[in-house]
């Protein structure tokens, strides 16, 4: 087992070195299928739990299922979908709804930058990047951190698009399942399904943490998150990210310009 692990680490390092040589050139679209297959993984399962929960939420709000499924396809970021569903069901003005949804989506910007900076290649048309970005949200960022090191640079953007297409299709089905299954599950089971989300995100962050800055960012996010939630409930995650992440960067960044 440990030899396998070391082999994995060496391959990871090789892939990272390869990164710099491989940053120019065309994409290899045969990786589309490999990406689609990765939808069947632990992060995919965790995502399924969240979307079953979203289906249950639609049911409990007496909203049409079709609306929820269409937001899966057109919004594809669960916090935004929940805010949108909630606002629409309360009949709030469209501009207010759009603004609230947009606030929840600001967090997607750093995630798109992080994922694409490791995936894109120079010398190509940019449309594949715009498509790949369409799919990127928190879980796909974590999945890219976990799995994209094993994908050669030329295959990464196609891999992301394949993964995204497979996840959107699967999650639409899980939304439908959640809509109809809700209420049929015993409570301890139902609540455990919801608990998959914080469990997975915490362990994925811890598991993916390398340098000291990552650990600081995790610790500060955990501590500051509840505080910002009390003071700015609408902007809590964004505020915690900027304050906690900014502080982690300031405290742990490599000293001096010569080492940067």
């Amino acid at each position: 087992m440990s030899a396998e692990h070391e082999q994995g680490v060496r391959e990871g390092e090789a892939a990272r070195e390869e990164d710099f040589e491989e940053r120019r050139g065309p994409y290899d679209w045969s990786w589309l299928i490999m990406g689609a297959r990765k939808a069947a993984s632990l992060p995919g399962l965790v995502m399924a739990m969240s979307f079953i929960g979203f289906g249950a939420l639609l049911h409990s709000m007496n909203l049409p299922l079709a609306f929820g499924v269409v937001t899966d396809v057109f919004v594809w970021a669960l916090p935004g979908q929940v805010v949108m569903t909630d606002n629409v069901s309360r009949g709030l003005p469209l501009l207010v709804t759009a603004f609230a949804v947009s606030l929840t989506a600001v967090r997607l910007l750093p995630m798109v930058v992080l994922v694409l900076s490791r995936a894109r290649r120079e010398g190509n048309a940019r449309w594949p990047e715009y498509i790949a970005a369409y799919f990127i949200a928190a879980t796909i960022w974590v999945m890219a951190e976990m799995f994209m090191g094993q994908v050669p640079r030329r295959g990464r953007v196609p891999w992301l698009i394949g993964l995204g297409c497979a996840l959107i299709s699967a999650m639409s089905l899980f939304t439908i399942a959640g809509f109809y299954l809700t209420g049929m599950m015993p409570k301890p089971l139902a609540v455990t399904l919801v608990f998959f989300t914080p469990s997975f995100f915490l362990l994925a962050l811890v598991g993916g943490a390398g340098p000291r800055m990552d650990w600081l960012a995790i610790a500060l996010g955990l501590v500051i998150g509840p505080l910002t939630h009390l003071y700015w409930p609408r902007l809590d995650l964004l505020a915690a990210g900027i304050i906690g992440g900014g502080a982690a960067f300031a405290l742990a960044r490599p000293a001096g310009r010569s080492t940067a």
Partner: peptide, 13 residues
């Protein structure tokens, strides 16, 4: 990266 990490940690909290 630090901002995205802290943001997801805040979601957990």
């Amino acid at each position: 990266r630090a901002v995205a990490t802290a943001l997801v940690a805040a979601l957990v909290a």
